Simulated assay, not measured.
Amino acid sequence: MLLASLARGIVEYGADYGRGESLTGKTVNVEFVSANPTGPIHLGGTRWAAVGDSLARLLEFHGAMVTREYYFNDHGSQIDNFAASLFAVVAGEDAPENGYGGQYIQDIANEVMVEAMENGDRDPLEPAP
């Protein structure tokens, strides 16, 4: 009976039930879901997007000014190591130190080579003219 009474009170109060002001005047930066271009997409990225956005909404509900940052790692040494790993696989070599391994690297390298051959592109291992 107590839970039914609580639920009824929440519904009657409306959409502002639980709203607070404890974070009014504070700014919070919520960083979440760094998309990883060097690995396969997985369910964790989706789950953490929902968790990060939900957390930001709760902070706003309590008065905070929230900025959301979603990072996409599309440059730097991470991508350089990824590219070097792909080249190594195509050349029949082991991945370099700090490189990436795994079947997905082989799969991507194979896909790139097939597409290059279908398009009549030059062999990526040959020096540019």
Score class of each variant (00 low, 15 high):
36 N>E: 07
102 G>S: 06
37 P>E: 06
18 G>E: 05
81 N>M: 12
107 D>L: 01
19 R>K: 13
76 G>Y: 00
55 L>S: 05
84 A>R: 11
61 F>W: 07
104 Y>D: 06
79 I>C: 07
21 E>T: 14
84 A>H: 10
1 M>I: 09
38 T>P: 07
1 M>Y: 12
87 F>W: 09
66 V>Q: 00
33 V>S: 15
92 G>M: 01
121 D>M: 08
52 G>I: 01
15 A>S: 15
33 V>T: 14
100 Y>V: 02
10 I>Y: 15
22 S>H: 15
93 E>Q: 15
55 L>R: 01
118 E>A: 13
113 M>V: 11
122 R>L: 13
116 A>I: 01
95 A>I: 02
75 H>M: 12
120 G>M: 05
77 S>F: 08
4 A>I: 06
92 G>I: 03
24 T>I: 07
111 E>I: 01
98 N>A: 11
71 Y>N: 04
100 Y>N: 01
105 I>Y: 03
23 L>R: 05
10 I>M: 15
51 V>A: 13
102 G>Q: 07
98 N>P: 05
70 Y>S: 10
91 A>M: 00
77 S>M: 08
4 A>C: 10
113 M>K: 06
86 L>V: 05
41 I>T: 12
90 V>D: 10
23 L>K: 03
27 T>K: 13
74 D>P: 00
17 Y>C: 14
75 H>K: 07
38 T>G: 11
7 A>S: 14
36 N>D: 12
6 L>R: 12
5 S>Q: 09
77 S>A: 12
28 V>T: 02
57 R>L: 04
34 S>H: 05
21 E>Q: 14
127 P>R: 13
2 L>D: 13
66 V>T: 02
18 G>F: 05
42 H>G: 04
107 D>I: 02
67 T>S: 10
45 G>H: 13
39 G>Q: 09
117 M>N: 13
113 M>Y: 03
51 V>M: 12
78 Q>L: 00
116 A>P: 05
70 Y>A: 04
61 F>Q: 09
